[in-house]
């Protein structure tokens, strides 16, 4: 069954038509990647799914129910969590408080502590820095904190917006292997990336977004071998 189903989504910023009728779906347990150039509309897609933007047309279905008009704070509760572009860590909150905010919609303190321990098994470095302010972490650590924070709501669907942005290659490898592990734990993932090679290496399927429209769709293997993708997004000639 599809965990997320998007049909003919149109989103505008005033006169700027950022999404012009995109449709795609994510099956339960999949990693689906959305690749595309700067300004293609990738972040807009994620913001709309999270309820931060209202589409002018189209439908978003999550686990069979329409969430198109559901406000952002309720969407988290339903099980969709987003790790936004640029991390958006709460800079003046400690690492622990950032993680606690990730669990804002949850009540049971005991279970929240357990989730935090689970986050530490993926990101042990966070545990050493619990009392440090979020803004004082390095870029890589902030990405880890953002992902840890996103996991604290125990999502069924995780939206990741360019998790590799600005990270050293070694760290990118680490982050991607952690994404695979999160997925292996049963979390479906929508992965937005500029690093198409990396994204396709762990994804089941992918969509190529070009100026607000879906230009190509296919399995990761199909996209990796597609000559258009190779020249435009994989830097091969």
């Amino acid at each position: 069954m599809a965990i997320l189903e998007i049909t003919d989504l149109h989103v505008s910023y005033g006169a700027i038509r950022a999404l012009q009728g995109i449709s795609f779906n994510i099956e339960q347990g999949e990693i689906v990647t959305l690749i595309g150039a700067n300004g293609a509309g990738k972040s807009t897609t994620l913001r709309t799914i999270s309820g931060l933007l209202r589409p002018i047309h189209g439908d978003i279905r999550y686990q069979g129910n329409s969430i198109t008009r559901v406000p952002a704070e309720k969407i988290v509760k339903l099980g969709i969590s987003q790790v936004p572009e640029g991390r958006q860590i709460f800079s003046k909150l400690t690492v622990r408080e950032n993680l606690e905010m990730g669990a804002f919609t949850r009540k049971d303190k005991q279970e929240i502590e357990e989730s935090m321990e689970r986050v530490f098994t993926s990101f042990p470095r966070l545990k050493e820095r619990l009392k440090q302010l979020g803004g004082t972490l390095s870029g890589g650590e902030q990405q880890m904190l953002a992902m840890g924070r996103g996991l604290m709501s125990r999502p069924s669907l995780l939206l990741l917006d360019e998790p590799s942005m600005g990270l050293a290659p070694i760290l990118v490898e680490e982050i991607f292997s952690i994404i695979s592990r999160i997925n292996a734990d049963g979390v479906s993932i929508l992965l937005v990336e500029q690093n198409a090679a990396m994204a396709l290496s762990i994804a089941n399927r992918g969509y190529v977004l070009e100026t607000g429209k879906i230009a190509l769709a296919g399995t990761a293997a199909e996209l990796l071998s597609n000559p258009l993708v190779q020249t435009a997004y994989l830097g091969e000639s």
């Binding site: 999270s50 309820g51 931060l52 952002a72 704070e73 309720k74 988290v76 509760k77 969590s81 987003q82 936004p84 958006q88 860590i89 709460f90 800079s91 003046k92 909150l93 408080e97 606690e100 905010m101 990730g102 804002f104 919609t105 924070r149 709501s153």
Partner: peptide
């Protein structure tokens, strides 16, 4: 308190706060 931390989070970054499920 949780709600106090949410207040501080909101004053720092409203969008991120909404993504946490905080009702602005």
């Amino acid at each position: 308190t949780k709600i106090g931390k949410a207040m501080r989070a909101t004053s720092l970054d409203k969008t991120a706060a909404r993504l946490m499920g905080i009702n602005i």
